[in-house]
Amino acid sequence: MSDLHPYVSVEAVTRAYPGHTVFRDLWFGVNRGEFVCLVGHSGCGKTTVLNILAGLDKPDSGGVIVDGVEINGPSLDRAVIFQGHALMPWMTAEANVAFALSCRHKGWSKPQLREAAREALEKVGLGAAANRKPSMLSGGMKQRVGIARALALAPKMLLMDEPFSALDALTRGALQDEVSRLVQEANQTAFMITHDVDEAILLADRILLMTNGPDSHVAEVVQNTLPRPRDRANLHKLPGYHALRDHILEFLLTRSRELRGNPQPGWDRKALPVVRPAA
């Protein structure tokens, strides 16, 4: 995969409301099998980026190309794991996944759907809770069902909008490890929004740093050179981890504010500067 023709390509995307530019002329790409995180403060427009990738929001100009085809609205090929789990509370965990599968495989029989849904739930360790409704599941379990629902679709791209931000720290950690494993196993192309630095370091191959909004831009791309497989228990022992973390933290604490509307010299929106703090 060359960087010239990435699998997913965001090209010249602008989103603006009257009197309020969220971002303009945004360019970046995601390669096949790559995990990209977009990091920035609230209000920088990162959810808008994700919604445009999902097809839930439309850019005012520019476009997104996935696997050679410009996207036009939502698609089963771009599965979303929502911030709130977004499960249907009147369906059991299994029915929630089966509903998604029934949209993907229109010809499948009910037993086929149930079988596949159960299999997807077993992959996230929820085989025993398949017949429970969301109200009978803990927050972490609900989000697991959301993950199972998205992965069961075998999408070209997995989109995640701060999927763990509503969970307590312990559950969040367990789910991060789980998503890391599942995405690696499936060689899944993934794009995730977060403001949790460690989460980005654990999961991402590349981390896009977005300045504060409005009229934000992607200031630079951080290449995460820490070796895989990573897990949270050993992450902080890896050489280069602290340099990487400090770089991102410093960006969030000061540079995200300073660089807003004031890109660093030599910054090119079509060829974003790449840094390797951990190398």
Partner: peptide, 27 residues
Amino acid sequence: REWLNVARTLEAGTLKTAWRVILPAAA
């Protein structure tokens, strides 16, 4: 909104969305 967004990302179609998502949600 989020349930409708789920239906949209699943390309569920108007009738299926009405029957499987909106009707049970509004019931």
